[in-house]
């Protein structure tokens, strides 16, 4: 057992978001701060740099983000843009919710990638759990993770077509020779309207 992880052994000091951001900016000048209208803040990094950033966040003794709590893929195709003049964003975003058990602080990291060629560097070698999370994002959103040793569908069947959590997903009419359309249901509007 690692001593830093056990009870009451000098639990470190939680760092505020600005201090974490400053540290990341020194090593990765391309990283940017982001915030949502409801006050949540995050660090946006380049998808190709994700692995180096992850290694840095985990190994830096002041940050020590040793656990990946959640990896969420979000399709921004229909998300409202900040102002009317700004162009529509069609990116796919990977959201990493990190937590440090030593310091008990949290951080959100986002990596935005294009819809046409969605590739993000895999962090599977940093946090083992990312292996499953990345397969799920690959399955449901179609994001590829460069460097993942076993990137294939996890929840859906291998022969499924499309990525259901994309906002422009078209419901299949048949699967395995079985008609999926039900009475009074239109595929254009989705099944639950």
């Amino acid at each position: 057992m690692s001593p830093v992880l056990s009870r009451n052994l000098n639990r470190g000091k939680a760092q505020p978001f600005d201090a974490i951001l400053a540290k990341v900016m020194v090593s990765f000048p391309s990283a940017k701060a982001g915030s949502s209208p409801n006050g949540e803040r995050w660090i946006a990094v380049q998808p190709s740099e994700m692995l180096e950033v992850a290694r840095f966040l985990k190994n830096d003794p002041d940050l020590s983000f040793d656990s990946l709590a959640c990896l969420t893929g979000v399709d921004l195709l229909k998300y409202p843009v900040a102002t009317k003049d700004s162009p529509p964003c069609t990116d796919l975003v990977c959201v990493y919710d990190l937590h440090s058990l030593r310091h008990n602080h949290e951080l959100r990291v986002k990596s935005s990638t294009s819809r046409e060629l969605p590739v993000v560097a895999s962090v599977e070698s940093v946090w083992g759990v990312a292996s499953f999370f990345e397969r799920e994002a690959f399955d449901l959103l179609g994001v590829s993770f460069a460097g993942h040793p076993n990137l294939r569908r996890i929840l859906l069947p291998e022969d499924w077509i499309g990525n259901p959590l994309r906002k422009d997903y078209v419901y299949p009419q048949t699967y395995g020779g079985v008609e999926l359309k039900r009475e009074g249901q239109t595929f254009e509007s989705g099944p639950y309207q």
């Binding site: 992880l5 056990s6 009870r7 656990s67 058990l101 083992g128």
Partner: peptide
């Protein structure tokens, strides 16, 4: 081990059984 439990996203009782106090 505690390191594996944290890295592989074990949570709740499975994490604590490995000695991680969280």
């Amino acid at each position: 081990s505690a390191q594996d439990a944290v890295s592989y996203g074990m949570v709740g009782p499975n994490l604590r059984a490995s000695g991680v106090d969280f």
